[in-house]
Write a protein that binds this DNA or RNA. Structure first.
Lengths: 251, 251
DNA sequence: TCGATTTTGTTCTCACGTTCACAAGCTCCT
DNA sequence: AGGAGCTTGTGAACGTGAGAACAAAATCGA
């Protein structure tokens, strides 16, 4: 505890038992690669094999794994099953996490039907929507329940992860309700920036942002020097249809 | 060309007219924030206003925008409409990009119905699936067509972006066909690592990876020191059901 | 016209992430 | 037993990204 001040500047301040965020984001990829190897009956794999399967280079993979401990054998490689278990444990998917999905539109439907929810470790305990027309509908072996039941469900099932698949409009309110009910991790598919208090983790998945990033690079490829000629002032007149009331920064 | 060697070490080697990847990933967020401000009738906004709306800090926002040029006015802020146009142009969404979606399962359905496809700038020109039972089905104002028509469609509509929403199995083959047909940007929802030749951009959206990242942090919160006790060798015996044929690195 | 005030654009520094390269350590063969 | 041959784990160099801080430039009021 009091040794906190004695942290020497030697290594890049490897946080106490903390794994770099970039590494955390790759662990699930390694986990999937290991599962695939295991399913093929491969018992041992080198960092090179694993790296290829995971789509990264082997030095990065070895460094990532080194944050978890020394689970390999020099001159041999990694035991697939053993490493798989260690990574699963580190991520936390050896236990089950209860998940609620809020907003049963097209996307909510798709996620609800996602067989096995991608990977084991997650259990959908409720599908919620505020639309009375949707409540009661059966999806797979689940039934859509009223959003008003949120608090009871979160408490009863110890739900720690919420998935928001509502439109942008109600997303912040849904988020607030989730947090108030005790959910501490949120996966947001709505195209808005949600604000949450400290201690709540939030991740965002945004189709249109991904497409726009692709478009940027695409433009660089085909266009190269054929950019739209940098119009210093395009047809701005007439584009601003809105009255611009109260426009501005301060008042 | 020959000036390549004369690159001085002054700034962090700001790539020739190249925008840092981290900045590119944020530009769509700024674009959305600007659109929201514009819709509210705000005509001018400071970097602080914009940063709040976009969920970043203002220094980062200003630095990001500085890569595009000097589009603000000191002491005043940014003209919302003007900046919005400049960012849209830089990203490339002032033109229309033709998109095909391959794999019309639950997720493909959801994306096909996604009204306006999130943001303007993208036009779905075809929904493709290899399943004869799906071909012909109407979704919105589109009809599912046979995957075999891919090449013809890509050529006819100058499709540069492909979205893969198939299961993991056929994803790599679909990807290869897309690339062979001339698609140079791919958005992959299938839970596999796709390999593509140089010059083809690929981005991945993976629900189960996102959930696992959340689970990792969640475990840190509640568990803290209550990790599953680091079993050095768990119930490994019996877990490896598979014959382990040809298992190993070399042969 | 001039100074006060505001806000941008940029520089500098630090932290993080990636990659290289190699010593340490394991297995296998003789 | 001992050396040859691999493969891991890690130290060090390098590149990218984030944030603080400040000079430059614009507006506004007197």
């Amino acid at each position: 505890m009091t040794r906190a001040s004695s942290r020497r500047p030697g290594p890049p301040t490897r946080t106490e038992r903390g794994i770099p965020e970039a590494t955390v984001a790759r662990l699930p990829v390694y986990l999937r690669a290991l599962t695939a190897l295991s399913d093929s009956g491969i018992a041992t794999a080198s960092s090179e094999d694993l790296a290829t399967a995971a789509g990264v280079n082997s030095a990065k993979l070895r460094k990532d794994l080194s944050y978890l401990g020394s689970y390999g054998t020099r001159g041999v490689g990694y035991d697939v099953e053993y490493l798989r278990y260690q990574i699963a444990r580190e991520i936390g998917v050896t236990q089950d996490w209860a998940v609620v999905i809020v907003g049963i539109g097209n996307l909510g439907h798709a996620l609800a039907n996602y067989s096995g929810f991608g990977t084991r470790g997650f259990r959908i305990v409720a599908l919620l929507d505020a639309d009375p027309n949707l409540v009661g509908e059966r999806i797979g072996d689940m039934e859509v329940r009223d959003f008003a039941e949120l608090e009871a469900i979160v408490k009863a099932d110890r739900v720690s992860i919420g998935v928001i698949t509502t439109p942008a409009g109600p997303a912040q309110e849904v988020c607030d309700r989730l947090v108030a009910a005790g959910v501490t991790s949120i996966l947001n598919f709505a195209p808005v920036v949600l604000s949450v208090p400290d201690g709540v983790d939030i991740r965002k998945v945004d189709l249109s942002i991904e497409l726009q990033i692709l478009a940027y690079h695409e433009q660089r490829k085909s266009g190269e020097a054929a950019l739209p000629e940098v119009p210093e002032l395009p047809a701005m007149n007439g584009l601003t249809d809105l009255p611009s009331v109260g426009g501005g920064v301060g008042a």
